[in-house]
């Protein structure tokens, strides 16, 4: 049955409208509100005019805020790097050394932990790394000194986050490795390159889009993580999400909290764009 483009457009719009309206009301409007609040004057629980950039100035001038932003950024970048580097060989193994009919099974095994309760996984680390916890008591049984990792809050936070987001990184890398034309690798080796050089000059650059996608998928939730600093870091090393919570909920300073939220979205946005631009270089280079 042929449809004119106009009636097709009308049907499509009608069909998508419930979802679109839901998202506009509950996501677009709230995000716009946060943006507006961030340039308003605020007190406890109230927002008022005049419009001002003071909230952002506050963010720049108070070194503790800058420190928390920077710390979140660095922790997220370290976690991202660790996760991606650790995941790459796994994705490579599944793509190149597992029989095609067994690949789904391996991927399923890798993704299952992601689907088990995040709160339980993080809480478990709290029990593992804590004072006299599973790790230190195991070391004691073997006759080694306790590591007391819990007293190194930032290190614990990095370990826990790297574990929590690990499965995220494998899938995109795997997908890009699957797309690598196997005949290119044979060509490389036929032309006398060693296996390692072929990997560095062919496979790795061709799989970079997957690596960058993986980095983004890990970076975005880690930079905004709330639970891990709260539980594993015992609240002593707050990250951005904890800071936003303090301003918005505990101090009820909506404009200041909104400014932090906008600033952190900007930070995520800038890093994401940087990743995407980097990605473009590889797509361009592999013509």
């Amino acid at each position: 049955m042929a449809q004119t483009p106009r009636s097709e457009a009308r049907t499509g719009l009608k069909l998508i409208s419930p979802t679109a309206i839901y998202v506009i009301l509950l996501l677009a409007v709230p995000l716009a509100t946060v943006l507006v609040y961030s340039v308003m004057t605020g007190g406890r629980g109230i927002v008022s005019f005049p419009l001002t950039f003071e909230n952002y100035a506050e963010l720049w001038s108070k070194s503790v805020y800058g420190y928390i932003m920077l710390k979140s950024l660095l922790v997220a970048l370290v976690v991202t790097a660790a996760t991606v580097i650790l995941a790459y060989p796994v994705a490579y193994f599944v793509s190149f050394h597992v029989k095609p009919e067994r690949k789904s099974l391996w991927l399923f095994l890798i993704t299952i932990p992601f689907w088990t309760s995040y709160i339980i996984r993080v809480s478990l680390w709290f029990v593992i790394l804590g004072f006299g916890g599973v790790l230190d008591s195991t070391l004691a049984v073997v006759g080694l000194q306790p590591l007391n990792l819990a007293s190194y809050s930032i290190l614990s936070i990095i370990i826990v986050l790297a574990h929590a987001y690990a499965p995220f990184a494998v899938l995109p890398i795997f997908v890009s490795l699957e797309k690598v034309d196997r005949s290119l690798l044979e060509a490389g080796q036929d032309l006398g390159e060693s296996r390692w050089v072929t990997f560095l000059r062919v496979t790795l650059p061709l799989s970079m889009p997957g690596v960058i996608a993986a980095a983004l998928i890990v970076f975005i939730p880690t930079v905004g993580d709330y639970v891990t600093p709260e539980l594993v870091g015992d609240g002593k090393e707050p990250m951005i999400a904890n800071l936003i919570e303090t301003q918005l909920l505990k101090l009820q300073n909506f404009p200041q909290g909104s400014a932090f939220a906008v600033a952190s979205m900007l930070m995520v946005g800038i890093v994401s764009v940087a990743f995407v631009l980097w990605n473009r270089r590889f797509i361009g280079g592999s013509k």
Binding site: P30, T33, V34, Y37, I220, V223, F254, S258, A261, S272
Partner: peptide, 24 residues
């Protein structure tokens, strides 16, 4: 993209934006 946006937004931001509007 708007519908898929929550996938690439830290969940804390979604929660806080919604909370601010609900409280307001």
């Amino acid at each position: 993209s708007m519908i898929m946006l929550p996938l690439v937004l830290p969940e804390m931001i979604v929660a806080m934006a919604l909370l601010v509007v609900l409280l307001s």
